[in-house]
Design a protein around this nucleic acid. Sequence first.
RNA 1: GGUCUGGUCGUCUAGGGGUUAGGACACCGCCCUUUCACGGCGGUAACACGGGUUCGAUUCCCGUCCAGACUGCCA
Length: 496
Amino acid sequence: MRVRFAPSPTGFLHLGGARTALFNWLLAKQNNGVFILRIEDTDAERSTEESTGQILDSLQWLGLQWDEGPYFQSQRLELYREHIERLYKEGKIYPAFESPEELEAERERALAEKRNPIYNRASLRLPKEEVDRRLAAGERFVWRFKVPDEGHTDVPETLMSGAADCKFENAAMGDFVISRAGTMKEPGWPLYNFCCVVDDALMGISHVIRGQEHLSNAARQVLLYQAFGYPVPTFTHLPLIMKNNKKMSKRDKDADPAFPVSVSGRRDLGYLQEATVNFISLLGCSYPMEEEIFPVDVLIKNFNLDRLQKSNANFDEDKYLFQNAWYLRNLPREDVVERVKPFIEAAGYDWERAAPVSHGAEKWLADIIGLEIERCKLLSEFPAALSYFFIAPSEYEQRGVTKIFHNEGVPELLDAVAEALLLTTPFTKEAMEDALRRLGDAKGLGFGKIAQPVRLAATGRTASPGLFDVLEHLGREEVIRRLVKAKEWLQSNPKT
RNA sequence: GGUCUGGUCGUCUAGGGGUUAGGACACCGCCCUUUCACGGCGGUAACACGGGUUCGAUUCCCGUCCAGACUGCCA
């Protein structure tokens, strides 16, 4: 089995493309096949090297390593031209001289008259002498494929159309362009539908898996395979991935920047590679496993084209986030710590300096990440979640001030806690808990009555990881400092 | 307009002529608990509509409706 992923380098790799690549890759892995990467860069206007680099990066980040390629269509022009020549000699294509403007006008006329806007074959009806003369004169033209007038073309499709062949009426297809405008001396670059067929045939692609938006292209491509006498691969057209009931597209200018459509954008927001692969594998496909979280090797074993869904899939941000959070919690901790580090550093937090002297900095960082890990869904959330370990609170959560700080006797309580913690040795969570529980007993206070104000004083928040874990990792000095500061703040901001 | 494809909880989906229509996310409730979160348990919630075929249709067939893709000298 030979499969391929063939992106055009006109932007980043988007999640839909990533899924297409993944499904191809899975099939190759599963069947000991070959996964080929081909860059479809025949649109010189839009293709960029930068984009190619980004696409390769993203594929590698996802772990979708190709076995062959990348091939670049821009380096295979000779091949395409030979094929064009062949079709021309066999009378299967013809030059068409209309300008884009003429075509556009004709198209609008057709639409206005409610006719199907397909090419009217004006150039096909030109006398041979005229064609030869204009060609010799160096007039610009495009190559058009002569589609049979009658009959229909069957696309061997494994998914859509009930996995029966998909039939397309030839008469409705129109003579499509296979090569951009050029002259005999300076031919234009060939077009997608054409290159794709030549390459897939020459590269021995046995199975084409791509988005459903290509289904109608497939009919034209089948015609080309037949024209060349090349074997037609089988096609599987995947249901589209929808966002807001529209096809999720990298060309969507209205896309919400908080939910990037690109793989790299997700990576930069702190989505994990494992979660991304897992999540996109679920879009339009199901697996025999009950659980929806599974490692990639299980995915390879269980992926099956028969289990593809035919209807379009909506991109569910909540589920993606859920899976990301799951991987955050369940991947080896050291591994997660390494991935969080850059985000912490980018936020300007110097964890080596912030760690209390009593803790090793590396261990301390790993510990505090562990403390907040259950409250984070993305790597990018850690800096904000951990901020109180780096910066003492300068203000306190409003809800906490009214519901906790403004209770009777809080300033005295903070004093008493500071005093107790000053004497607590070692400064461990067990010893602290012991000390504060005893303090509570002595004052006749429920434990929550003590923990809540201390938490607010230490973190500025009403919610945090276990209080004593936090205190221990803040270090005694800092905790005392914050308790004193909170008391002072309360004295200058009393209940009104 | 034309061509093509699709339609099961809000979302992703399993299923398939007879099921209490199953799971996951989200949501709600309870438990755990120093808070939040995690975790555990439970709950609300779906076969687009109309005709057939059939003893029986969500499942098969046909229409309708709705949705989407394509309709480029983009891929």
